[in-house]
Write a protein that binds this DNA or RNA. Structure first.
Lengths: 205, 205
DNA sequence: GACCTTCTCACCTACGTGTTAAGC
DNA sequence: TCGCTTAACACGTAGGTGAGAAGG
């Protein structure tokens, strides 16, 4: 299912819904180096995980929280001599499919009482309708969160983009500094952190 | 949070909501032997897992699905000489706390499109507000599912009990036939299934 | 002693990592 | 060759089993 959007924040009128990115410092460490996210056939989780704090909802109304990825430019990027350089011809990119946060739909009170975490979204380079989001490898994307009021008169959608979380989709990491940063912070990559530590203690001996 | 119930099926009027137990044959294997469920301080999952098919909801209305456990009798049971025998004095038992299915609230269409599975409910013998359900060890219980319409004028609750799924809460299995049946069917107990198989092949040698 | 509960343990399921070599 | 993708792999996280010994 795709989401065709008009201009952003169609209905941030009366209440002023706010969505703020969490762990911004971590994201900026990656942004500095130009962030990369692995895409695989079966889908790969994001790291860092996108987490947001939400406020300004009606506690008693029902909302769904959506995540999609906007092509930051239509360009194909290439990593040469330690640098990302864009291809010249921007192709038109349609917005990605939409990931629906698994706790959707739920009350405004639920979404506001704690950080909303998109830990389970999976990025793929193939379309295989298992809830994964298909992206084009070597293209740049910007995550975007949508808040949709459900049950009521519909058409109340607010959208929020997070430039700090931009990344280039890749099938294998290009910048080894990105790899090192992922290993340093992602608990699931602990095996490789341990390996590096063993290496370092060898150097000392 | 407790659920005080009047007579069952307060509002099964116009639509006739139906809730049917899945994997009934498996449940009856356990029922035959008098089923037991482990309770621990931190909470233990049920096996078999309670799974139900739901029909007759309004696809566009919002419902929450609840699970609780009714004390089948107030009696304390005892396993002696390979048999469960009840104690004489039935104590009054209040209904258990309520487990809210994690996909609640959701549309009728969602609940009806696939089997609803309570795999994550945890049974405990202590009260330690982490979403676990406290039961009294050595007492007999009957699982019960409630369907609550939310958002609307409330007070529309339908309840369904499943006699085939009755069990006695225990801190350690009493009937070794129950243990064997659990090991046979629960993938998480595969270690003990393998051990038994190694044993059997030894016998052959 | 008898009965029930608690804790630690080995052994699984299930799956998230980057690495590496092979494929195209 | 080169650039990119794929699949198998070792090694983690995270947590669900009953066994068996210890506790009350």
């Amino acid at each position: 299912s795709k989401l065709e959007m008009g201009p952003e924040t169609e209905d941030a009128s009366e209440r002023e819904i706010r969505v703020v990115l969490e762990e911004k410092a971590l994201w900026m460490n990656f942004q500095e180096l130009t962030n990369e996210m692995i895409v695989t056939k079966t889908g790969r989780r994001m790291f860092p995980v996108l987490k947001v704090g939400i406020s300004g909802l009606d506690p008693n109304s029902m909302y769904s929280i959506l995540l999609d990825f906007v092509a930051a430019d239509g360009k194909r990027w290439k990593y040469v001599n330690g640098e990302w350089i864009p291809g010249g011809k921007p192709e038109p990119q349609s917005p990605s499919c939409v990931y629906i946060h698994p706790k959707s739909p739920n009350f405004g009170a639920h979404w506001m009482k704690a950080t909303v975490t998109f830990s389970k979204v999976k990025l793929s380079n193939k379309m295989n309708g298992g809830g994964q989001i298909m992206l084009n490898s070597l293209h740049k994307y910007e995550p975007r969160v949508h808040i949709v009021k459900v049950g009521g008169p519909q058409k109340a959608i607010s959208s929020f983009a997070f430039p700090e979380t931009q990344f280039i989709a890749v099938t294998a990491y290009q910048n080894e500094e990105i790899t090192a940063l992922k290993i340093k912070h992602n608990p699931f990559a602990k095996a490789f952190l341990d390996a590096k530590e063993r290496c370092n203690s060898k150097d000392v001996l």
